[in-house]
Write a protein that binds this DNA or RNA. Structure first.
Lengths: 149, 149
DNA sequence: CATAACACTACTATTTTGATAGGAATTATA
DNA sequence: TATAATTCCTATCAAAATAGTAGTGTTATG
């Protein structure tokens, strides 16, 4: 499952990614745009900052800015920052491997092998898509396509 | 995340799938083979039965049997039975769609579209693999391959 | 009828999730 | 330099989910 936190983070960053770079956007505004509880989003933005995905300017007229171009930030980075590894089970994770307590024979564990495949499939999608690939314009034309299909 | 419950279910069913069909296997034995708490596995097997994946024989010499051939039961069926829909977010689920409370414009929601892609990728793996595809023999030779690769 | 198995219900401890609250620190600007 | 607006930080909390455990009921078989 994608947590609410990760969903809110994605929504906020998608909004940010359509704003002119380098001009700070306040949490209040991101919260309004995304229908997100303001105080909760504050915590989220802080965490995104600690992960180097955004940076902030404090004080009056402060706010948050992307730390890289929208074409350089993947959905995978964001989801991992919020929810941790993509793998459904720690023993199948590349970035955060951990052995199962109940596992006797990891090399031949069908569960692990399957979950590795699931991880790889999810990673292919999430690490292969950048914020810029999902601009609201693109989304509009995507939904147009569906209507005319 | 894959719950412990789902992991245990997969392990137990993989064991079952290598036994001669129609001969009941007891929970105790499945629990031992998989390093699974017996009482917990009882609940799990019961739930699998309610989902029609296994059936049971009560009384002395009773136990559980697969309700179909190992070549007819997918990992997707099992995971869904234990953990619910594969989609990371309800609004991206085919089998259990639910709208997000905070969503204003579902048609153009980038989060939903991405999570649908993730769902589809996971479903392709899990619904495309049957218990019989992951026999312990296959697993052995898979790990051999890795050693000689 | 004794025994071995599943079936069912209830309970519980721990962790995670999704927030909310209050104030401290920082910065722009009037 | 005062003030207002903003991020930053810490604490708290309620509800839900997770991962079990326990005890008892029910049924089939020898």
């Amino acid at each position: 499952m994608l947590s609410q936190k990760a969903k809110y983070a994605l929504k906020a960053l998608l909004v940010l990614s359509e704003r002119p770079a380098g001009i700070p956007v306040q949490v209040v505004e991101l919260a309004e745009q995304g229908n997100i509880p303001r105080k909760f989003l504050e915590l989220i933005m802080l965490e995104l900052k600690k992960h180097g995905i955004v940076y902030s300017q404090r004080g009056k007229h402060g706010g948050y800015m992307l730390a890289a171009l929208p074409s350089e930030i993947t959905f995978g980075q964001i989801v991992r920052a919020m929810d941790g590894p993509l793998a459904p089970i720690p023993c199948a994770s590349l970035t955060a491997y951990r052995k199962c307590a109940d596992c006797t024979n990891e090399k031949t564990c069908a569960v692990r092998i399957m979950m590795r495949r699931v991880r790889d499939a999810a990673a292919a999608v999430l690490d292969g898509t950048y914020l810029s690939d999902m601009s609201s314009e693109d989304m509009e034309s995507l939904s147009d396509q569906k209507l005319t299909a």
